[in-house]
């Protein structure tokens, strides 16, 4: 990282605030909320590569979240496997399911793909309701915690936040190197990307599988945080919520969706009337953003910064030397 980066002080301040959060939050519920945001962010960071960078409109990631949470609950709860091993397996299961979902559906054009992911989310709900012995059906299933130092809300917060940082660093590294360039290229034009040698389907499938891993891990931590999950926990609207976080934050960046996740999760908790409106608020926000700033709210800040301190560009005015030109033409005519 460049030490003279002007954003560095901000980054350090953010990191310090995040690490010390349990000390100044002053309220167990706020720590819970911060843990929830971190668990969501693990999923959103993976989904961001899919939606924001690769441009695949997946609205059904809540299905993968549910799979991760149920896998963790069944392994760590019913079979009493070590929670950390279960966490890794839950991520693996999420990845495999993402792979299997992506295998047929990534061949489909945009809207068909969105509908396939929507259907996937509904199918997962159906299966969790039907498989009573495994998932407890509609009554739900208890999810164990991580035990030891991670049993307390503060300890669990640090665990989830730590994993979230890992995923952030991973996606950040992916996004700014060759893979990220390939994703952006095929988002903007898959034909052009294919023509310069980007393996379009392979990139899509790998990205989608990774987002499945992220959703599995996020789901496992989300389940452990909720401590009891039912199919009702994973309604389709939650999948839309993740999607909206990214669209509102802006496509092709990491900070935007991160801020989007924080704001959209925290805002209804602190502003009571918004909590009553629930999904209505998200829908209205999405409509406003799509109609006014399709590039995402993050774009507004860029625009404001450009207005306040416009980038100075060297103007090189080229004035034609008219006399020389006329002379040249005249010379040409005479010749």
């Amino acid at each position: 990282m460049n030490l003279r980066n002007p954003r560095l002080p901000l980054l350090v301040a953010g990191a310090v605030a995040a690490v010390t959060l349990p000390f100044w939050a002053g309220d167990v519920y706020r720590v819970h909320l911060a843990t929830l945001i971190a668990a969501y962010w693990i999923l959103v960071s993976g989904l961001n590569l899919v939606v924001g960078f690769t441009g695949l409109l997946s609205v059904g990631h809540v299905g993968l979240l549910a799979i991760g949470a149920y896998a963790f609950a069944i392994l760590a709860g019913t079979h009493e496997i070590n929670p950390f091993v279960s966490l890794v397996i839950a991520g693996g299961v999420g990845g495999v399911c993402g792979f299997l979902l992506g295998l047929p559906s990534l061949r489909l054009p945009g809207f068909y793909f969105a509908m396939a992911t929507l259907a996937f989310a509904l199918i997962v709900t159906e299966v969790t309701l039907a498989q009573q012995e495994l998932t407890g059906g509609g009554a739900g299933i208890a999810v164990p915690g991580f035990g030891g130092p991670f049993e307390s809300p503060d300890g669990f917060y640090w665990l989830v936040a730590g994993i979230a940082v890992l995923f952030t660093v991973f996606t950040w590294n992916v996004s700014r190197r060759m893979w990220g360039r390939a994703m952006i290229a095929l988002r903007d034009s898959d034909v052009a990307a294919a023509s310069v040698g980007v393996p379009v389907y392979k990139v899509k499938l790998t990205t989608f599988t990774f987002s499945g891993v992220a959703a599995g891990v996020g789901g496992a931590l989300f389940g452990a945080l909720q401590s009891y999950i039912t199919p009702e926990t994973f309604v389709f609207e939650l999948g839309m919520f993740f999607f909206i976080c990214i669209v509102i934050g802006g496509r092709g960046v990491i900070l935007g969706p991160f801020v989007g996740t924080i704001v959209l999760t925290a805002l209804p908790e602190f502003v009571a009337p918004l909590a009553n409106l629930g999904q209505f608020f998200y829908g209205a926000l999405l409509l406003i953003v799509v109609l006014l700033v399709p590039e995402g709210i993050g774009h507004v800040f860029t625009w404001l910064r450009e207005r306040r301190s416009p980038r100075t560009t060297d103007k090189q005015v080229v004035t034609p030397d008219l006399e020389r030109l006329a002379a040249a033409i005249r010379a040409g005519r005479e010749a």
Binding site: L57, F111, Q279, F280, G283, L286, L287, V290, L291, P294
Partner: peptide, 13 residues
């Protein structure tokens, strides 16, 4: 695909 987002928003609302 911007229409996908806008119709999704209207449908949700």
């Amino acid at each position: 695909h911007l229409w996908l987002l806008s119709t999704l928003a209207v449908a949700t609302i």
